[in-house]
């Protein structure tokens, strides 16, 4: 089928979707299936690779090539796939436990190598599949089955971690804002290099309402900040608040006191400011959504191919008999 004739339905499989009713994963699946026809890649050239977790069931529901692998290793598997097959569109599906606990090591190494793959990190701040233990993104003090007196782990700030690993594309969206999510999926796909998209995902069974502050009508506009390249940082019910930089310190200002041109203007290419944005992580500042950072940097698979081409150019295409013979031989008559 021609790629421009696909519809979202073409990306649905015949397998029954098995998440709990009301799970945020449904929305993500729907948006991904909606975006796929738009990326202009034939179905057979798309691969979804996941680890283990509720979220990692995802590939079973995508009518593309797919692998539901082992806990934490989707990033490493995708690295090998992309190294061997740079022509494919590779998507990694992972949970907060999968990517930041057991798979933390592979995640940071994938980011620094910058394989051209898209990571969708389903962050529900809980271990869903194993029925509700705290995860590396759960807040301190969280009471779960494994932390009856409250968690004493300090949580990861996933996007700050990824910036620290020199990620070339870092973005955040949420399950309850389909339109924004589709935009972010598009942007992830367009980015050449590893794109990391954190998706706030509600686990209504074990961690219901973790992100309600950002998704609920009543609080959303106060607590969220939608980033747009070249635009000032403005939020609030009536867009009446902005963010200003006081040295390196972001402060919330009221727009009736300061003018727009004094505000922080978002620049996706500015690493230092992106770092600061990832640190909007407490109660005092709104939580940013959108593309924090985007940078062009050589992808591992391209550098690898360049070395192969260079080796072929220097030594000629490998000849097995020459290799077997080596440089020193002798004859026995």
């Amino acid at each position: 089928m021609e790629t421009n004739k696909y519809t979202a339905k073409d990306f649905a499989t015949d397998q029954e979707v098995r998440w709990c009713p009301g799970c945020g994963d449904y929305s993500i699946l729907k948006q991904v299936q909606t975006v796929m026809p738009e990326i202009g890649v034939p179905k057979e050239d798309i691969v979804f690779i996941s680890g283990i977790g509720c979220s990692s069931r995802f590939p079973y529901y995508m009518e593309t090539y797919g692998m539901h692998s082992i806990h934490g290793r989707a990033t490493a598997i995708a690295s090998g796939l992309k190294a061997a097959r740079p022509d494919l569109s590779v998507w990694i599906i992972t949970g907060d436990g999968d990517s930041l606990s057991i798979g933390g090591n592979h995640l940071i190494h994938l980011l620094r190598r910058n394989f051209d793959t898209n990571i969708l990190l389903f962050n529900n701040q809980i271990y869903g599949l194993t029925k509700g233990q705290y995860s590396p993104t759960s807040e301190e003090g969280k009471k779960t089955k494994s932390t009856p007196m409250g968690s004493i782990d300090h949580p990861f700030n996933p996007l700050a971690l990824c910036m620290g690993a020199d990620a070339t594309f870092v973005a955040r969206t949420m399950d309850r804002d389909p339109k924004h999510m589709r935009q972010m999926l598009q942007r992830s796909n367009e980015h050449k290099g590893t794109s990391l998209l954190e998706i706030y995902q509600n686990c209504n069974v074990f961690n219901d309402g973790a992100f309600f502050g950002y998704t609920d009508k009543a609080t959303k506009s106060e607590q969220t900040l939608f980033l747009e390249h070249g635009q000032p940082l403005i939020f609030g019910v009536n867009k009446e608040k902005g963010i200003k930089l006081d040295g390196f310190k972001p402060i919330v200002v009221s727009l009736d006191k300061v003018t727009e041109d004094e505000l922080w203007v978002h620049d996706e290419k500015n690493r230092v400011k992106a770092d600061l944005l990832t640190r909007f992580f407490g109660e005092d500042l709104p939580r940013p959504f959108g593309v924090f950072y985007s940078e062009e940097r050589t992808c591992y698979e391209d550098a690898l191919q360049a070395q192969i081409d260079q080796a072929v150019e220097l030594k000629g295409e490998g000849d097995l008999d020459t290799l077997l013979r080596g440089s020193n031989t002798w004859e026995i008559e």
Partner: peptide
């Protein structure tokens, strides 16, 4: 894992 990914890709 990378080797498995490569094999999945036909290498």
């Amino acid at each position: 894992s990378a080797a498995i990914g490569a094999s999945f890709g036909g290498a």
